[in-house]
Structure formats: structure tokens, C-alpha cells
């Protein structure tokens, strides 16, 4: 079990306990003290292409983490940080809690919608697509979920936003880029012309 999940449902700080145990102290609680409450879910945010699953290291540009109640974000991402090629591609973990499994999943959906991360490809959109899938929702999925549902998942990844949003943004940017390179914009007037005019006006 992922430790943040256990921590969310039991309220025990596992890493702190581990350090105490390593220092020779006994555990601060007994099995019968533990009470599990509600449901928790964790999404691992990785720098990878959500379609090909290839790693996508690079520089993070915009980064805004989700906020709100019943949520934990363990992350080292910030704007300008370069995700290096040397380590594994995980950059953040998002954990949400709910009284029911459905509530935890809904909170995760909301958290992932709020997560802003640009500059590198991430699997956030893949998580969102999986969370929406009926098989995931009713709990009948297996470890072969991605393999078996790839054909269904892949087009869903692109359904979230329509082409015009991307095209308009790219077209306006391309327009501005080309306009700034166009020397006619600089209003350069030939010095010959300027002097010529001056002489004529003097006469």
C-alpha cells in the first residue's frame, strides 16, 4: 500500500514512525488502536507522454498545484524546474480522501482539473480519462485495464478539448511571431529619402 493512502485513512504518520523505530523506539500505537476511515486514492503524476508512455523530461513552465480540503500533494515541481533525464519520471503524487470511494474519486477529478503543469507532457490527462471510465468507476477493472481498454482510452484523451482552442492559440502565436520578424513593422526609412526631403524643404 502506498504510505500516503494508509496515512489518509488511519491518521498515522508512517514515515515518522519508521524513523522512531530505526532509532530504537517502540511503535507509538498498537494494532487495536488503529481505525480505518473512508477511502483514499493516489495519482502519480509522471513526466511521460500519455499516449506512448515514453518519458518526457524537460523544463516545466507553468505550475500550479491543486488546493482544497481532503487532499494532499507531495510534489517537487515548480516553474523553471528541469525534469532531468537521470531519474524516474514521477514528479508529484496527489492523494484525495472521501467518506466513500466515489467521493474520493470525485475529489481526485477536481484536483487533477485544477493541476496546471505545462512545458512537459504529463499523464494527468490519462488519469482523468481513467477515473471517468465506467469499468474503473464500478471497480471491475484489473491490472490489464490499460492493455484491454487502450483503444477506448486513447481517443477519449483527445475528447476533453476541441481542436479550435489549440488551433486559435497556435495561429495567433504564429501570427505574432511572424509579425515581429517583419522588418516593415520597424518603420525604417532610408536616410537618402530623409535627406532628400530635407533639402527640398530648405529650397
Amino acid at each position: 500500500m502506498e504510505h500516503p493512502i494508509t496515512e489518509a485513512t488511519t491518521g498515522v504518520d508512517l514515515v515518522k514512525e519508521q524513523i522512531y523505530v530505526a532509532a530504537g523506539r517502540p511503535l507509538s500505537f498498537k494494532q487495536e488502536d488503529l481505525k480505518q476511515e473512508g477511502f483514499a486514492i493516489e495519482a502519480r503524476i509522471c513526466a511521460e507522454d500519455p499516449i506512448t508512455y515514453k518519458p518526457s523530461p524537460g523544463v516545466i513552465r507553468a505550475c500550479r498545484h491543486p488546493q482544497g480540503p481532503f487532499m494532499r500533494v507531495d510534489s517537487y515541481a515548480y516553474p523553471g524546474y528541469e525534469v532531468p533525464i537521470y531519474y524516474d519520471p514521477m514528479i508529484a503524487k496527489v492523494i484525495t480522501w472521501g467518506e466513500t470511494r466515489e467521493e474520493a474519486i470525485n475529489r481526485m477529478q477536481r484536483a487533477l482539473t485544477e493541476f496546471v503543469l505545462t512545458g512537459i507532457k504529463t499523464n494527468i490527462v490519462l488519469h482523468k480519462t481513467i477515473l471517468d471510465h465506467p469499468k474503473f468507476r464500478d471497480g471491475s477493472y484489473t491490472t490489464q485495464f490499460i492493455e484491454k481498454n487502450f483503444e477506448v482510452l486513447e481517443p477519449q484523451l483527445f475528447k476533453q478539448i476541441d481542436d479550435p482552442v489549440f488551433l486559435i492559440a497556435a495561429a495567433i502565436t504564429a501570427y505574432n511571431d511572424r509579425k515581429s520578424k517583419d522588418i516593415r513593422q520597424l518603420n525604417l526609412v532610408s536616410n537618402w529619402k530623409r535627406i532628400g526631403r530635407k533639402l527640398v524643404l530648405r529650397a
Binding site: A62, T118, K128, Q160, D163, F166
Partner: peptide, 13 residues
């Protein structure tokens, strides 16, 4: 070639 990111989706155009 431009890559446009929004709402955790992206397209290369």
C-alpha cells in the same frame, strides 16, 4: 511547430 498546452492536454501543431 508549436506545442499548445491547456488543461493538462496538449497538441503539437
Amino acid at each position: 511547430e508549436y506545442t499548445v498546452f491547456t488543461r493538462n492536454s496538449f497538441r503539437t501543431i
